[in-house]
Amino acid sequence: MSLQQLWLMCLNYPSQVVNGLALFLGLAGGWLLLATRLREQRAQARLLLDGELAALEEAGLGGDVRSERLNRFFYAFGAASLLAALLLSWLSTGLQAAAPL
């Protein structure tokens, strides 16, 4: 398929192109949220096995501040990408194909 044919398909079906972008953003955001949650669970399990979790809770410390900040960023970025995917999908319903030349 040549680049010209690909461009014509994008012009003829703009809603599908935008929906494809929304699908990509949704998959990437969902994967990021899932990977962050798994990373948190593994870190907690590692601390529990080392016996450090009880000592941290007694001292009133929640854990590593940098890791918590990074996890918050990943959660916010994943949620923002899911929201962007939802908005793109919603906005693509109003797109129409370009008029033929």
Rank of each mutant, 00 (worst) to 15 (best):
A59E: 14
F24S: 03
A98C: 06
A22Q: 00
E52S: 15
L95V: 02
L27V: 11
Q96V: 09
Q4V: 11
G20V: 03
L47Q: 11
L88N: 01
L27E: 05
L95E: 02
L27S: 05
G29Q: 00
A45D: 12
M9S: 12
A45C: 05
R69V: 10
W31M: 12
R39W: 10
W7D: 07
N19L: 09
W7H: 09
A84D: 02
G62L: 13
L3K: 07
A55C: 09
R72Q: 13
A85T: 04
D50S: 15
A99L: 13
R39N: 13
E68Y: 08
E40T: 06
W31T: 12
L11R: 13
D50R: 15
G29W: 02
L53Q: 11
W31L: 14
Q44R: 15
F74Y: 10
A76L: 13
L32N: 00
R37M: 10
P14M: 03
A98L: 14
Q44E: 14
E52I: 08
A55M: 11
R39P: 00
Q16M: 11
L101N: 04
F73E: 05
A22K: 02
S92Y: 02
L82F: 00
T36L: 00
M1N: 09
A98T: 08
G20I: 04
V18F: 00
G94M: 08
F24V: 06
L87S: 06
G62Y: 07
L8H: 02
G63F: 07
A80H: 03
L8T: 03
A84W: 01
L23R: 06
V18Q: 04
G62W: 08
E57C: 10
L32G: 02
C10V: 05
Q4W: 02
G62F: 07
A98K: 06
L91H: 05
G20Q: 03
L38N: 02
G30T: 03
N12A: 14
F77W: 09
A99G: 01
L95Y: 04
A97Q: 06
L101H: 08
L86Y: 08
R66L: 14
